[in-house]
Amino acid sequence: MAAVAFYLVSAVAIACAALVIFQPNVVYSALFLIGTLLALAGLFLLLNAQFIAIVHIIVYVGAIMVLFLFVIMLLDLGRDPAGTEQLPYQRGLGIGLGVLFLAELALMVSFGGGLAGAPEGPLPAAFGYTEVLGRMLFTTYLFPFEATSILLFVAAIGAVVLGKRRG
């Protein structure tokens, strides 16, 4: 059952990712990227990471992709003549980096991970639930959690200071 779901979601992710680069229309590309990200959220769900799946949807699909589409429409990038390269050596660079990434993955798999700290054995029952995460945020990670609010406040001050029209 889980395997079927995994292959289904993965297939959707790969198909959408392929369509992102093969679409001549940038808006369609962005829409297919949303599809890819949704499929990735599905993969997170299958890994028992419910919270990350939801956050992934809210942040990437919700906020970031809306920003993408907004920029595309603002700059009127809708029509892109097929086959043109926007950046020099774009295609070669893309293929090269893709191959490099593949090699990295192969290396990692052949090393069998080899990383310290990877959990062994079955996951704890409540793994990935928001409740566990919330508990950690307000215990172990209480200080960083509160410190983040200072950081965000500083950023908000910055937006006002630098962005406000002088009165």
Binding site: F143, P144, A147, V154, I157, V161
Partner: peptide, 20 residues
Amino acid sequence: ITIFLGLETLSISLYILAGI
């Protein structure tokens, strides 16, 4: 994590102050 948050709080404040 704490060190990174401190680094960012410091840096963002300084970015703004430099352009104030």
